[in-house]
C-alpha cells in the first residue's frame, strides 16, 4: 500500500499541519529557558528601539535641512540686526554642518534635553511632561475599553453566530469606517448639546476634581475607542473561530471536556494570543487618534500639542512628541512580548 499519512477527513475539509518537533527538552530546565528568552527579547527590543529612535531623529533632521526658511531668521524677526541673527544662529548651532548639528541634538536628547520650543521658548521636555499624563489617561482608558468591549463582542460573535453575530460584525465594519474626529462631533451633539449630560469640551485635571476628570474623559475615550473596539473584536472573533476549529479543541471535545471550558479556557486563550499580537498596533493607532480627538475636545495632551506645533512650524516641539510616542510604542511592544511568552510557551525569539 502506498505510503500515505494524510487521511480522507483532512482531505475533505479539515486541515492538520504536521510540524516537525525538536527533541524533548527536560522539564526542569523550562524555568531558566523562559528567563533566557526574556532577556534576549528585552535586548532585541531595546536594540530595535534605539535604531528606531535614530531613524526618527535622522529623518526629522533631514526634513529640517530641507526647510526653506531659517529658524534663526524667524526668531530674530525682520527688525533684528545681522549680529543678533548670527548670535541666534550660533546659539541654535545652525552655523555647523548638518551632521554636527545632528550630533549636538543627539547628545542633548540622550540627556533628556530636546531643546526649546520655537514659539514659547519653554524646554520641549517640560512641555511634553505637563501634557503626557493627559494623553496617557486618554489612551489607557481607550485601551481598556477597546479590549473589554472588543473581546466581548468578538467572542459573542464567534460563539453565538446567527443574528447577534451578524449584528456585531456589522457594528465592527462601521467601527472601521467612522472617523474618530467625526464620531467625537456626533457624540458632542448628542450627549453634550442635546442631552446636556456631559461637558462638550475641555479637560479637568484629576487633582482638581476626580469626578469631573472622569466626566471630561467619557466622550473622548468613547470617540477614540471605536476603531480599537472594531479591530480587537475582529481579531478575537477570528481567533476564536480558528481555535474552535483546531485539532486540539477537537481532541478536547473527544475527551469530554465541557463546552464552557472549551470556550473559556481553551479557545479564548488562543484568541487572546491574536488579540495581544495586535496590541502594539492598537497603541499606535490610539496615539494617532488622540491627535484628532484631543483637538476636537480641546484636551491639552500631546496630540493637540503636536497639532499646534505643526501649525506653528515648531519643529523641535513636534520632534519631541515623535520621540515620546515612539518610546511609548516600544514600551507597549515589549510588554506585549512578555505577555505573549507568558500565554504561549512555544513563542521563540526569531
Amino acid at each position: 500500500m502506498s505510503n500515505v499519512t494524510t487521511e480522507d477527513v483532512q482531505a475533505a475539509g479539515g486541515s492538520t499541519v504536521m510540524v516537525p518537533r525538536p527533541p524533548a527538552a527536560a522539564a526542569h530546565r523550562i524555568g531558566s529557558f523562559v528567563d533566557s528568552r526574556l532577556t534576549g527579547l528585552v535586548l532585541k527590543r531595546t536594540a530595535t528601539a534605539i535604531v528606531l529612535l535614530m531613524v526618527v531623529s535622522v529623518l526629522s533632521f533631514v526634513l529640517i535641512s530641507l526647510t526653506p526658511g531659517d529658524e534663526a531668521r524667524a526668531i530674530v524677526g525682520l527688525g533684528g540686526t545681522h549680529e543678533q541673527y548670527l548670535h541666534v544662529r550660533a546659539e541654535l548651532g545652525l552655523d555647523k554642518s548638518p551632521p554636527e548639528q545632528y550630533w549636538q541634538w543627539l547628545t542633548r536628547a540622550v540627556h533628556g534635553n530636546f531643546g526649546e520650543t520655537l514659539t514659547t521658548s519653554e524646554p520641549v521636555t517640560s512641555s511634553i511632561q505637563t501634557r503626557l499624563g493627559v494623553t496617557i489617561s486618554l489612551t489607557v482608558g481607550s485601551m481598556i475599553l477597546s479590549f473589554v468591549l472588543g473581546v466581548l463582542f468578538g467572542v459573542i460573535s464567534a460563539v453565538r453566530g446567527g443574528v447577534t453575530g451578524r449584528l456585531l460584525d456589522a457594528l465592527g465594519v462601521l467601527g472601521f469606517a467612522v472617523p474618530s474626529f467625526w464620531l467625537a462631533a456626533v457624540l458632542i451633539t448628542i450627549f453634550a448639546v442635546k442631552l446636556g449630560w456631559l461637558p462638550s469640551t475641555g479637560y479637568v485635571s484629576p487633582s482638581v476634581s476626580l469626578g469631573q476628570w472622569l466626566q471630561s474623559l467619557v466622550l473622548p475615550v468613547l470617540a477614540l475607542s471605536i476603531g480599537g473596539i472594531a479591530a480587537i473584536a475582529k481579531q478575537a472573533r477570528d481567533g476564536m473561530l480558528e481555535a474552535l476549529a483546531s485539532e486540539h479543541i477537537r481532541a478536547a471535545r473527544a475527551s469530554g471536556v465541557s463546552p464552557t471550558s472549551i470556550i473559556f479556557r481553551h479557545a479564548l486563550r488562543g484568541a487572546a494570543l491574536r488579540v495581544i499580537a495586535v496590541t502594539g498596533w492598537i497603541a499606535i493607532s490610539l496615539l494617532g487618534g488622540a491627535v484628532f480627538v484631543e483637538s476636537v475636545f480641546a484636551i491639552p495632551g500631546l496630540g493637540s500639542l503636536a497639532v499646534t506645533a505643526a501649525t506653528q512650524h515648531d519643529i523641535p516641539l513636534i520632534q519631541g512628541v515623535v520621540v515620546c510616542f515612539t518610546v511609548i510604542v516600544v514600551i507597549v511592544n515589549l510588554s506585549t512580548d512578555v505577555l505573549y511568552i507568558w500565554l504561549d510557551p512555544r513563542v521563540r525569539v526569531a
Binding site: 494617532g288 496630540g303 515623535v322
Partner: peptide
C-alpha cells in the same frame, strides 16, 4: 517594515507638515 510599523504614523505626518506646510 517592522521598523516603519513601530513609528507613530500620524505624528510623523504632522512633523512633515510642520516642515512643508
Amino acid at each position: 517594515s517592522d521598523l516603519l510599523f513601530g513609528m507613530p504614523g500620524i505624528v510623523v505626518v504632522l512633523l512633515v507638515l510642520a516642515v512643508f506646510p
